[in-house]
Design a protein around this nucleic acid. Sequence first.
DNA 1: CCACTCTTCTCATAGGATGGAAAAGCTCTC
DNA 2: GAGAGCTTTTCCATCCTATGAGAAGAGTGG
Lengths: 267, 267
Amino acid sequence: MPRDHRPPVRTAPGRSATSRALSLLDAFDAGHPALTLSQLARRAGIPVATAHRLLGELCAARLLARRRDGSYEIGARVWQLGLLAPPTSLREAALPHLQDLVVATGHTVHLAVLEGRSALVVERLARSRSQPTRHSPGAHLPLHCTAVGKVLLAHAPPELQVEVLRAPARYTPWTVTDPDALRRQLATITAAGSARSTQEHRPGVWSVAMPVTGPAGIVAALGVLAPLTAPRLASALSPLAAAAGAIGASLADVDLGEATEAPLPPE
Amino acid sequence: MPRDHRPPVRTAPGRSATSRALSLLDAFDAGHPALTLSQLARRAGIPVATAHRLLGELCAARLLARRRDGSYEIGARVWQLGLLAPPTSLREAALPHLQDLVVATGHTVHLAVLEGRSALVVERLARSRSQPTRHSPGAHLPLHCTAVGKVLLAHAPPELQVEVLRAPARYTPWTVTDPDALRRQLATITAAGSARSTQEHRPGVWSVAMPVTGPAGIVAALGVLAPLTAPRLASALSPLAAAAGAIGASLADVDLGEATEAPLPPE
DNA sequence: CCACTCTTCTCATAGGATGGAAAAGCTCTC
DNA sequence: GAGAGCTTTTCCATCCTATGAGAAGAGTGG
């Protein structure tokens, strides 16, 4: 019975119990779809013993599952819940039109929504299915140097524009990082109804995008990507507009749940 | 200052803080993709004040989002995390083969995995995209009266078989609810390599299914559904086997993360 | 066989979660 | 426009539950 003395436990730094559990979920990303207990504890910044208990709860709720080797992965329950999230209804409404657009243009097609300070790719379709798509659905794109991002930014609330234009990151030698130049671009985009990006995010690639307007306003941006060597992009504008319009129209009865950012500005 | 006296708060029944927060997530389902605070509190069985605080945390973690009208919905973050769950990699590996199978048979195609005591539909493809698919991906099917369910059950651990066969629910007049008869069916299915269901789950519909075998054993079941009036189902067996084999083969390098049920049997 | 890492479990403490109640909105009806 | 009935938000005293060091168990491999 060597358990002789128990020094007082240095307890609860300040985060709530729930926030710790949720930080464990945040430890997973595309590069880390499965993690061990100690990896999770490290990445979430909480003691192993605590992580172990919380992981047990997350597994009981089926948000996580254990693999054969003992490591943890995101559970099917999360996938299932995710089907109820707004991107799914949008994605399903858009899919047939995206396919049409791929056929019409022969290029890769993007559908993205605004999430936080970046564009969340809801769906991406390429000519050949087997072609390795660099950014799969679920990836984030910058707002200031992609065509879909610019469309979303141009129709975003001014506060967000200010925030994003404060310090635009450079991705290629062609990325526009001057706030004033970008601001002028946004004005043009709102007026013209379409945005483009030429090698601003990825060398050798240009893209055009247009807004998708549902009953509650702009809900997404639809873009076409192609290599610089491809035929003129002007030919893509007409089918792009048609597809964007068709998607918007099919959104008529779909929920108008434009989610707001965070409900609690205080703190 | 009318706050004169404060009777002691009848506190904490027994559930952990985290489990309460997670029960709020469980309140969402396909029929209720958006809920108000009081609905959530009712459905999760927790006081409004507590629910309000926990919902604030879930929104901060972006697992939930608020709509314009103040109601809550599943956040895009959940959708994004769900892309890391096993169903996604399986779904993506299978999709091209499912499309081939739809073309080859002309019927609706199902891909399902075992989850708990039911079959989780990972993907469903029909001939015409616009046709209203009754059960979309994410839905659960019973194990004892659908073709995909029977395949999964036949290869499931004996404990699960016992549990499911204890009291099989009746869905139609043709549902087989006799445990012994079902047990014999399972033996036949294991031997023959395919299962069928004729109106056992839904009147006027039959289905055939086969297992999808990856490097780590049976990972899913692939099924074909058709109305009773359709041509003989035997013609579907050959393309079905081909597709199931192709999916299994393309799973070779995909993670072998066969998730176990729950890690903690105690309690 | 020992050294090492990862996982599981225990338990005394105190700090945070709890929920009744009040207040603030919000939508109708009369 | 007062009032009833509803939902959402805030407050705070109590006390229950989360906490995390440590020890033991379970692998791993040199």
